[in-house]
Design a protein around this nucleic acid. Structure first.
Lengths: 109, 109
DNA sequence: TTATCATATGAACGGTTGCTCATATGTTCA
DNA sequence: TGAACATATGAGCAACCGTTCATATGATAA
């Protein structure tokens, strides 16, 4: 075992969020932790876009994009609307932008 | 192929960051995308802490914590200082907190 | 130096993940 | 209804990732 620091730990532990919330936080960032998904979110930064336009933009398969959009949607990071055969995706809320912006700031310094 | 949207894509593409930066962004968030690393960063939220205290706090192996601290340090998310046999880690800057805080906001709503 | 403590590190293993391929679903138009 | 288009989805595979285990490094004290 290690040296003693029980007193310190007791204090820190009390201030930590629940395990469940920490897990959710990790799961959320995991979704931002893929270049393809980051690119998709950037593509939707200003305006909605249909699936095939995103696929075209990123030079990737429609299937690959659809799979990732499903992941993003399940995490409430994007929303969609149908217009005929086409389905348009958009960012779900401003949090997506601010999370990306914070990461951007850390990188570009 | 899909329906035509060349004009749209040209505009969007011009506004996208470089592939390299998008890759870096993904890599950054990937580091936040693991519960163990999130817990470590939360442990260091208020004050520095030695490796074995973190291991004790999280109920994990010293080896596992060291491996993750190495990842965090390589990404400039934590820094360390030595004091005798002990090595103390701390958050590298305020960005770490603000990135986590943004994620937290998205979760707790 | 030798023993002990604190931390770091390399290899290996199991689980996860993102893409591809084939196919299914859903919509429009003739 | 049938054909074409846009998107969704399941299975399978290769690559990646986090932990464990064994061991190495570095520092202190006797």
């Amino acid at each position: 075992m290690a040296h003693d620091h029980a007193a310190l730990l007791k204090h820190i532990k009390a201030d930590m969020p629940s395990d469940e919330l920490l897990q959710d936080l990790g799961d959320l960032f995991k979704i931002f932790g893929d270049t393809t998904r980051i690119k998709i979110m950037y593509a939707l930064y200003e305006d909605e876009m249909c699936v095939c336009a995103i696929a075209d933009l990123l030079g990737m398969t429609q299937s690959a994009i659809s799979h990732q959009l499903k992941v993003l949607k399940a995490a409430n990071l994007v929303e969609s609307r149908r217009e005929g055969k086409t389905i348009f995706y958009r960012l779900a809320d401003e949090h997506v932008k601010s999370i990306i912006a914070q990461g951007y700031d850390h990188i570009t310094e």
